[in-house]
Each structure stands twice: as C-alpha cells, then as structure tokens.
C-alpha cells in the first residue's frame, strides 16, 4: 500500500518536476551553448569557441562584475541592518500591527518595479519633489540626488526590502522566548543576547534573506539604469548591451554565464557551509 502511494506520489509530481527542471536547466544550457559560439556567427554546429570568455577579461568587464557584486553586498548589509529591528517587531512585538505591516510591504510588490523606481526618479531628480521644494522654500537648489552609486544602492535596498524582511521575521520567530529570557537571567546584556542567542538561532532566516537579496541585487539592472544613469555600468547592463546594441550574443551569453557561475557558486557555497538544522539545534 505504502509503495503504491509512493509511486502515485511520484507520478503526480512528475509533470511539475519535469517542468521545473526544464525551465531551470534549459535556459542555462542554451546560454552556455551560445557562450561557446564564435563572435558574430550563428552556427549551431560550430566547434566550441571560448573567445567570448577571453573578452570578459581583456575588455575589463570584470569591473562591471565587481560593481554589481560590491553594490549587492552593501545593499544586503544595509538591508540586514534596517530589517532586523522591523522583523523583530513583526515576529515578537507588534502582534496585530504585524498584519498591517505585512500587507503594506507586500502591496508595494503589486506595482511594477520600474514604475516604483520612476517614482523615486521624480522624487530625487533635479527639479523633482525634493530639490523643487528646497528651491521653493529656501530659494536655492542643488543638482539632485540621482546618478551616483549611493542612489543605486538605495534603489536596491528599496526594491529588495521584502526579500530580507520576511525571511528575517521567520528566522526571529524561531528564537524561543525562554532562551532569550534564560540568557538574561544568567546575566547576559541585551547585546550579548543578540550576539550569543538571537543571531545564531535566527541564522536560517538571515541566510535565506541575505542570499535572496544578494543574488537578486547582483543581477539587477533597473536600479542602475534609472537611478544611477551612467554612474557605473553593472554586469546585467553589459549583458543586455551585448545582446541588443552589440549584437554579440556569444559575449552576452558568456557574461551571463560568468554572473551565474559567481552568484550560483556563492549561493551553493553558502548553503553548503551552513548546516541550517544544526544552527538551530534540530538535528537528531
């Protein structure tokens, strides 16, 4: 009976599993295939050619990768710092207000990312909401707050806040109240409780939130285009340019593969190193 149930389960799960595997693997394989084509030639029967990867090093695309990863790292750190107290409140303090906050944060996702970012452009640009009011009230303006690295990081923080907040709140909810109280009773200060009890026990939530934010930020393009202008070129921008204006699909594919390899490798390394069950002491 059990065996039959298992077989039925596998059978029911097969279509979705197949779909997920194909939709995950097929694009990667396709991009990997394109990345080994000779430049400006579309030939499915070609010999593998890795010249596009050579261009990555020769033409300084690594700088774009560095900018993407650097800004993703900074954004993830900022997100962690600003989301921790909020997530703590949601998990342990706010009670009914948690639902209101959740709805408020989720509702921002109902509006397209580009439209929300354009809203910030109108707010931060020269002659925009902030600079315009400054000029109106104080008679003096400034060049606006756009087109620099901090504005890109701000955009990343703004867009990916829910991806840090909710996993973090889940992680904090897993910290038993009596473990915190016991540490306090044993003489721990608020800071020691955070360091010794809360952070380690909330580690699964921290890890998931940080990975999500880092991976998404590293591949983000809209923030750098809309808020950053040409302040820095991120790797996703380079990929788009190679596929569109450059009409150099092998180069675009190679850049995409490099990004996938770095971010995917980091994610696998992070998850592999972190034994989530052991972190929270649930391994039997």
């Amino acid at each position: 009976m059990q065996r039959r149930d298992r077989q039925l389960g596998l059978l029911y799960a097969a279509p979705l599993t197949l779909f997920l595997v194909l939709s995950f693997l097929a694009p990667i394989l396709l991009v990997a295939g394109f990345s080994t084509m000779p430049a400006k030639v579309f030939d499915l029967a070609h010999m593998p050619d890795f010249s596009a990867y050579g261009e990555f090093l020769r033409q300084g695309y690594w700088k774009s990768v560095a900018w993407s990863l650097g800004m993703a790292l900074v954004a993830t750190l900022i997100l962690f710092v600003i989301c921790w107290p909020l997530a703590y409140g949601m998990a342990k303090v706010f009670k009914r207000f948690t639902l209101v906050l959740t709805i408020g944060v989720v509702m921002t996702l109902f509006v397209s990312e580009n439209i929300r970012l354009f809203g910030w452009v109108l707010t931060l640009m020269k002659g925009g909401l902030i600079e315009g009011y400054m000029r109106h009230w104080f008679g003096t303006g400034f060049d606006g707050l756009l087109y620099n690295v901090p504005s890109i990081v701000f955009g990343l923080v703004y867009v990916y806040l829910p991806f840090m907040l909710f996993p973090l709140a889940q992680g904090i909810a897993m910290v038993p109240d009596d473990a915190r109280q016991a540490a306090y009773d044993l003489g721990a200060t608020r800071w020691q409780i955070l360091r010794e009890i809360e952070l380690p026990l909330a580690a699964p939530g921290i890890l998931v939130g940080s990975l999500l934010c880092f991976v998404l930020s590293a591949g983000a393009i809209a923030e750098s285009k809309l808020l950053g202008g040409q302040a820095v070129i991120v790797i996703a921008d380079e990929v788009e340019t190679a596929f569109t204006y450059g009409q150099n699909w092998p180069l675009g594919a190679a850049l995409a593969m490099v990004l996938i390899a770095i971010v995917g490798g980091l994610a696998i390394w992070g998850i592999g190193r972190a034994d989530l069950d052991r972190m929270i002491g649930r391994k039997g």
């Binding site: 038993p176 009596d178 473990a179 109280q181 016991a182 540490a183 306090y184 009773d185 044993l186 003489g187 721990a188 200060t189 010794e196 009890i197 380690p200 026990l201 580690a203 052991r278 972190m279 929270i280 002491g281 649930r282």
Partner: peptide, 20 residues
Amino acid sequence: PANKRPTCMVFQSLALFPHM
C-alpha cells in the same frame, strides 16, 4: 534587572540553548 541579580532560574521548558 534580572541580569544583575545574583539569582537564577531553571525554566519549565529548561530553556537550553539548542545551538550550543
């Protein structure tokens, strides 16, 4: 405050730290 008192408690749940 509790963390300054020279007393301590064994909790009903024991409140052991599972990650240690």
